[in-house]
Each structure stands twice: as structure tokens, then as C-alpha cells.
């Protein structure tokens, strides 16, 4: 595998020491890294899965509405950021690997490096309390 750009390496380092759950993806949407807090929400471990190709995301978690209906990927903040390179935010449910349905709020933003290189995106996500 070729070496990751320094901006992506440093993003992983930052994610690794943050309490908030973080996803790090490349421009094609491959999941390069997720941190310990994300492991807790998703019910999987990075040491077991390693990076996850874009076509296998669906096996990691399933985005749904409150009734469990599958959500089309275009509406998800991270997918929007990947397609238009702009920050995006939204809330939705996920069914994680342990079969739990969790409401999460996601903020996604593009990672653009020096001098003007598009390198991927980072998504921060929080478990949202149901009211």
C-alpha cells in the first residue's frame, strides 16, 4: 500500500486521541480509520477489521430512519461531503453490529491539504439522546 499523505496520518493521530467518535475516509469513500469511541458505537474493532473498502460499509452499520427503513446513502452527511467537498451535518439512526438501533448526529468535513489537494473527509459523530 502506498504511504498515506501526512494530512491523513495526522488526522488519524488526532482521531486516535479524541473522545468523540471519528471516521476517516479517503476521496473514494474507503474507511481508512475509526477510533475507539467509534468502535463503541459501531460494535466493531479497528484492530479486527482494518480499513474497510467503500463497498463493505453496509456490513459495518446500516443507516435507517426511526422505523428501521434503510436510508439511501446520498442523504448521509459523509456521503454528501465526499460528493461536493463541503461540510455537512445530519442525524439518523444506525443499526450496529450488535443489533442495537442508535440515534447519531454526524458532522462531516473535507480534508484538503497543501497546496490544494483533496485527500478525503473526516466525520465526527455523537450518540444523540432520544427525547
Amino acid at each position: 500500500m502506498p504511504q498515506q499523505p501526512i494530512e491523513i496520518i495526522l488526522s488519524r493521530q488526532l482521531a486516535d486521541c479524541m473522545k468523540v467518535a471519528v471516521f476517516l475516509v479517503d476521496p473514494a469513500g474507503n474507511l481508512l480509520f475509526y477510533n475507539e469511541a467509534a468502535e463503541g458505537i459501531l460494535g466493531i474493532r479497528f484492530s479486527e477489521t482494518g480499513s474497510v473498502p467503500v463497498e463493505e460499509w453496509a456490513s459495518v452499520f446500516k443507516p435507517t430512519d426511526i422505523h428501521g427503513n434503510h436510508l439511501p446513502p446520498e442523504g448521509l452527511p459523509l456521503v454528501q461531503t465526499l460528493s461536493n467537498r463541503k461540510p455537512a451535518q445530519g442525524s439518523f439512526y444506525i443499526d450496529n453490529r450488535r443489533g442495537k438501533r442508535i440515534l447519531i448526529t454526524v458532522t462531516a468535513f473535507p480534508i484538503e491539504g497543501r497546496p490544494d489537494t483533496y485527500l478525503g473527509a473526516m466525520a465526527l459523530f455523537w450518540k444523540t439522546e432520544l427525547s
Partner: peptide
């Protein structure tokens, strides 16, 4: 020390490797 993840086990995650 800052520019590498899981150092020194993942060359592709190490600044300067290439």
C-alpha cells in the same frame, strides 16, 4: 513520533516512508 500511527508497524501510516 507525531507523524506515524502504530509506529513502527505500519509503513504506509508513517510520514516520510516513501
Amino acid at each position: 513520533g507525531l507523524g506515524a500511527a502504530n509506529f513502527p508497524n505500519e509503513p504506509d501510516w508513517t510520514s516520510g516512508y516513501e
